[in-house]
Nucleic acid binder design. Sequence first.
DNA 1: CGTATTTGACCCGCGC
DNA 2: GCGCGGGTCAAATACG
Length: 288
Amino acid sequence: MDGHVEHKNTSLEEVSFMSLTDCLQSSLLMDYNLLEKVFKFPPYSSPFQPVTPSNMGHTVNNPHLNLSSNSPMVSSSSNEADPKENPNDNKSDRMEEDIEGDQHGVGECSKLVKKEGKKKGEKKEREARVAFMTKSEIDHLEDGYRWRKYGQKAVKNSAFPRSYYRCTTQKCNVKKRVERSFHDPSIVITTYEGKHNHPIPSTLRGTVTAEHLLGHRGGGSSFLHSSPRHHQDLLMVKHPPANYQPVVSMSYEQGHVINSYNNNNYQPGVDYGLLQDIVPSMFLKHES
DNA sequence: CGTATTTGACCCGCGC
DNA sequence: GCGCGGGTCAAATACG
């Protein structure tokens, strides 16, 4: 539906946003360099900004960004998810996945099968995606779901590899890619693809519980200052609006969610649907 | 021993 | 058609 993208904006924010959106929506391959460009990492700034207690656990701000102090580090993109959304994708078997997902790589045995399943000329629909940029020492953020790593690849023009994860829950097709920003190694870029069709696992290595996810934000973000180590801040921005703003941020400690909160509380008129679908754990909390 | 990760091989789309 | 880069598979390995 909204495949259409306007390109006539002139403000930095809008141009940036649209570029990213365009990137996310139209490109089969996510161009992370573009993603970073979109967020305007200045080429002249040192790419190796050390993570210090002072800048860790805080909103990532790029002074060169022409954005508000709560610069959004994240963008989401709903790709007008599959019309059919294959809810039936009982991919307990990999072969099936290959057939249905027909763009996947293949192992020796599946290579035969895959060709038949493919209808030529039919482009693979992309699942909804959300990309996050998170300032963190930890690559793989705990988000309440369980993931199994299924691949890792070196990324061109980046010193850091990209990791590929798949939700371990059967029938759940959600994937996740994680890589570190080449321009700022303290930043982790996480991209979710697809929507979970199941609740958050109750037992997650016994570490992240609903309470963790809900967080206990009593006094603003004071907790940010209390235990600086292994902190991560995450910001999200809602998809298309002309003026995007930070929506939700989370904090992690030692790989686990210790808090989540909204910077400005829920914004009226902002559609959280996609984000909520994809990373519901970020929306769990909320004073009712 | 069951489960998760690593890693080289392979496939695919795209640009030249 | 070929090469490149991204994405995935799956056997081997590591780990609890």
